[in-house]
Design a protein around this nucleic acid. Structure first.
Lengths: 231, 231
DNA sequence: GCCGGCGATATTGCATACAATCCTCCCCTC
DNA sequence: GAGGGGAGGATTGTATGCAATATCGCCGGC
């Protein structure tokens, strides 16, 4: 019998609370629960989250480092405002970084585990799209699959710095732009086919092609955005 | 006379100590004062810096967010190890980001103040190099001028996210690579001429050319590095 | 002689108290 | 009535105490 079972009754938390607080706050900010420019006060958040100011303060600083919050000395933290230009720039940045990740992955070559994972992800996407449509209910699964593909490729790039920057480039509060990617079948199908081509190029060690394909891929996502200074 | 001179006797600090602590620690880590993998303990640093653990803790987290430190729960912070590959990758990343910054600046166009500042910086560089050599004593001035040029262009890009990522891409502890840029007059002259061409392209609003020139510029810096897995 | 459990010590994580500063609003003066 | 100054409250920055946990050396058993 585990003698420590009484010491960890239910939650069995092994991670510092400041990390979960940071995750919770990050999700809330990205979800747009705090309007642009809204101040985040330590005491209020402490009460809301049921912890003291200390972990809240750490979490706020982490979010500021992620670019989601602004910090003014003696004035605390507030939600950063993003205008349409910054959103579009972020996609340009992401395009360049994703292209770089694909290039690095192609130059390094994929380990067997990474190759298997990427192929499994693509197979899952194939299945989701095999019926010639993407029903509303399958969107969450598709979104997860899509994110998993990109994340797996980030990992395969072998550059931690690049992965971290890619994470930053996608940390944008939805409230300030309402960007929504298009989910028409044709567009989704096209994007998934892009993924197939990209993986193929990576497997062939064709770094230049992998980079260009990925760059164009993200650029096309940007072009397909709706709600950002649209006509 | 400053009426507040008595209220702020000596230090005249208006910024939180945690910020200066972070700057000090960052400089120390980048300067390589803490060998790769070395643990940074809160109490030790508190005593060394003469502050309590609280600001030290904040500073450590900030440095971890910058990618300079690693953090393991219940085990604290330690200096990240960078191998030669990560260093070289960082230059590739920086090349892509600097290229993007030049492109953004060209697309937006420079405001009068930015144009004047960049031209002043280049003029300073011209003066430093006008004698056909770069004496040892002028290197610090040249290094500052060079950094100022890039920073001014980052600002002119109009993307805060990009500027932040560029900062991250240059946050590397020297101890783990000993990268040293070449200071032979011919190379320095060439790099300075690159800057002239880049500014010219930006002023002409030739975004594509500006991006390519900048990208090649940084790539040539990478190629000129000494001490990173060199032959 | 080597491995595994165990306890002392050191270190981090969190909570809270205190200090410094800023913001707000009221009152006083012109 | 408008503007400036000041008092009070609110909020952040810092210090410190306590609890939980990891590290490391020691001892016993095999």
């Amino acid at each position: 019998m585990d003698t420590r079972s009484e010491a960890r009754p239910a939650g069995a938390r092994r991670l510092p609370r400041s990390l979960s607080v940071a995750d919770e706050l990050r999700a809330a900010v990205i979800a747009g629960e705090f309007g642009p420019g809204e101040r985040l006060q330590e005491v209020r958040l402490s009460k809301r989250l049921g912890v003291s100011r200390t972990p809240v303060r750490l979490a706020l600083q982490a979010l500021a480092a992620d670019g989601l919050l602004e910090h003014a000395p003696r004035r605390g933290y507030s939600v950063r405002r993003f205008d349409a230009t910054e959103i579009l720039n972020a996609f340009e940045i992401r395009a360049a970084l994703e292209g770089l990740a694909a290039r690095f992955a192609a130059e390094r070559g994929l380990e067997e585990a990474a190759r298997a994972r990427l192929e499994a992800i693509l197979a899952e996407g194939d299945a989701l799209l095999s019926r010639g449509e993407l029903p509303e209910g399958s969107r969450p699964a598709y979104i997860r699959m899509n994110a998993a593909f990109h994340e797996a490729l980030h990992g395969a790039s072998g550059s931690r710095m690049l992965g971290e920057m890619l994470r930053l480039s996608q940390n944008l509060p939805l409230s300030s732009h309402h960007h929504v990617v298009a989910f028409e079948y044709r567009r989704v199908r096209r994007r998934h086919d892009d993924h197939h081509r990209i993986l193929e190029a990576v497997l062939r060690r064709d770094a230049r092609r992998a980079e260009n394909l990925m760059c164009d891929h993200v650029a096309s996502i940007k072009a397909g955005l709706t709600g950002v200074a649209g006509p």
